[in-house]
Design a binder for these strands. Structure first.
Lengths: 94, 94
DNA sequence: ATTTTTTATTATTATATATTTATATACTAA
DNA sequence: TTAGTATATAAATATATAATAATAAAAAAT
């Protein structure tokens, strides 16, 4: 039952359209904050904040190159989980 | 991208410890509000509210017997998804 | 008919999350 | 060293979610 808190925290981390978008966008990439910000058309601080939330839940890995910060998916399991959730949502609608 | 809103809404629906608990508890049962309320030790209005959220996201099916309302899991896919999420969270911690 | 039981809804208050704006830090380049 | 670029953090505001308490609605039992 206490584990439900941890799990709920994980779901909360991905329960945001922008963060789902970030995960999908950086999949198979190692991409820096500025490029994510431009590509998704969200401002820099908000981008950093969402990235921090995902990183804090161990979904992303951060590396630094000079003054740039690059992020990538830690484990592709999150991609699979999102895909399965998408299928389930479709199925549940019927 | 618009689909991310729908998906985020789905994750939000399950991103709460009590609601995860409800899903796990009523799995393979058809159980009325009062019994859920007692079993999980949450008050009746709060129980009804959480059930309504899950039902609104098509996760539960509601039936009425006399003056009782019974709820059951609509599709066991949600159980599988939760189990996979639990495994993933464990894996990500390492 | 009235009371009891069960559930749902509404209103209130409390708490959490999100977005924007401003500021700070770190590194690079001139 | 100063100016520029990239990122993070903090503060302020707005919005959303949650929990409790109060009320309403529906059916059952007396």
């Amino acid at each position: 039952m206490e584990d439900n808190n941890k799990l709920a925290g994980f779901f909360k981390a991905i329960a945001h359209p922008t963060r789902i978008n970030i995960i999908k966008t950086i999949y198979e990439k190692n991409i820096c904050v500025n490029d994510i910000s431009k590509e998704l058309n969200i401002n820099q601080p908000n981008t950093s904040q969402h990235l921090a939330i995902l990183k804090n839940h161990n979904l992303l890995i951060k590396t630094k190159k000079g003054n740039e910060a690059c992020y990538k998916i830690k484990d592709e399991g999150i991609i699979k989980l999102i895909q399965e959730a998408e299928k389930l949502v479709e199925k549940l609608e019927k």
